[in-house]
Write a protein that binds this DNA or RNA. Structure first.
Lengths: 191, 191
DNA sequence: ACCTGAACACCGTTCAAGT
DNA sequence: ACCTGAACACCGTTCAAGT
């Protein structure tokens, strides 16, 4: 009875969970469809029913990553509705934490491969960027930033976070130094 | 006579050249040792004489990439010995150009895989960062930056460039927008 | 609709053998 | 010192067959 096929329509979710776990302790190269199937206790052909090929699985993982990042950054920002600098710091902290605990996932999310093709990933990335932009909106209009072009200001902050994440992922700076860099950036951006 | 073994000790360089070319029109996943050997007209086992495994080849490619990036950014900066903002802009332009024409290579260079292990890559990366830092030195001491900690100022600029490069590579901003972001960053950093 | 299992082409790696 | 070619284990992908 307990030996009946382990999954009933949730193999897809099981594979994605396992893929995320694998990414958390290795690189995207370590992600093998056959190994995932093995860990899920199904045959190596089974994933085919849910993902047309390996890239489709990676796309789904990236999409999920963007959704989680959006949620975590958005929540961190929402905790500070009045204080702008504090809100940016909180959002940045959430971003850096994500970059530290899920370095390989973030790399996958922002690789040309991940963002280049799949529309689902594109859409999820778009939602992330607009949620991120919303952190600035009211204060941008109020002119509390030194920057000139509002859109530019937003993108610049994303670039800083992304760059800091890359420096941390490549072990060039520590997570603490990364937080310091973010603080410095916020300081420079505020009028 | 012309059918004698094509390479005489320069197979290593041929493989690295071909690897770079492959990276320029694809991702690191498209890089296959066997395919490189095929293109070089040698047997699939031949690369083994020069690279112990695939990772060793990737390391060598990354190291070479850092050396070229160092050279190009350094040269761009050296063309403007007096004007600080112009020097940073020139160096940043060189960096962004590299990020555009060699996106996959840059990704390899900054991936945890590339920088994580091999000492040669670490050393080349270190030389790049110190060359990059040298662009700031005189003016940092002269206090021409708004930033507080000099080391932080340097790292922040690298982070901005790296982040802008990632945004361009993931097709989220154009190369022109990237240049605009860099200009904005320089403006914000200068006192 | 979902999963199995054989089949195929490709890859990285190893290694004895050649020059 | 450098390269060849067979061998091995692993992988992604396809597909007919089962339930």
């Amino acid at each position: 009875m307990t030996q009946q096929p382990f999954h009933h329509g949730n193999l897809r979710a099981v594979l994605l969970d396992q893929a995320e776990r694998t990414l958390r302790q290795g690189s995207v190269d370590d992600l093998s469809l056959r190994e995932l199937a093995r860990q899920a206790g199904v045959s190596h052909g089974a994933p085919r029913s849910h993902f047309i090929d390996r890239q489709a699985l990676l796309d789904a993982v990236a999409e999920r990553g963007f959704e989680r990042l959006t949620e975590e950054v958005g929540r961190a920002g929402a905790a500070h509705p009045t204080d702008l600098a504090e809100r940016l710091r909180a959002a940045a902290t959430a971003y850096v934490r994500f970059a530290v605990t899920d370095a390989a996932l973030l790399e996958l999310m922002f690789s040309a491969k991940g963002t280049g093709s799949a529309p689902g990933v594109q859409a999820a990335a778009g939602r992330f960027f607009s949620t991120f932009g919303a952190l600035f909106d009211a204060d941008l209009r109020a002119g509390r930033f030194r920057g000139t072009d509002p859109e530019r200001t937003r993108l610049l902050f994303v670039a800083v976070l992304q760059g800091v994440a890359a420096l941390i992922a490549s072990h060039r700076v520590s997570a603490e130094q990364g937080a310091g860099l973010v603080d410095e950036a916020i300081e420079l951006m505020l009028a």
